[in-house]
Amino acid sequence: MDLSLSTRTEGGRTVVEVGGEIDVYTAPKLREQLVDLVNEGSYHLIVDMEGVDFLDSTGLGVLVGGLKRVRAHEGSLRLVCTQERILKIFRITGLTKVFPIHATVAEAVAATD
């Protein structure tokens, strides 16, 4: 399955809804999207991963890259994910310490640093 991306603004944050597989083949699309958003001045991003079926280390790398970019502008990158198989990948790589992970978009929108 390919990657689907859609963005919207919610409560002053930019929500990127991702669906499908984030792997070495599709990750560049997500990277491009995150880079574009930051270049356009969106520094508070929420990546909604509830529709993601598969995530590999390339996808993790893109999210880390996005985090680095928004942090350079004192921004934030929050994740929305409740799927155990995706959460597990963040846990085993220790990235739960790096990304704030929320159960719903509403919770992520309401969160402050």
Binding site: S57, G61, V64, G65, R91, I92, G94, L95, V98
Partner: peptide, 27 residues
């Protein structure tokens, strides 16, 4: 795991980060 998050948090270059992340995932 600590290595991977450390590399990511410290802003290591993305390529290095990805390679370390891949190994961390396998391990």
């Amino acid at each position: 795991a600590a290595d991977a998050s450390g590399a990511a948090a410290n802003g290591a270059s993305l390529d290095v980060g990805e390679s370390e992340l891949g190994l961390a995932v396998i391990l």
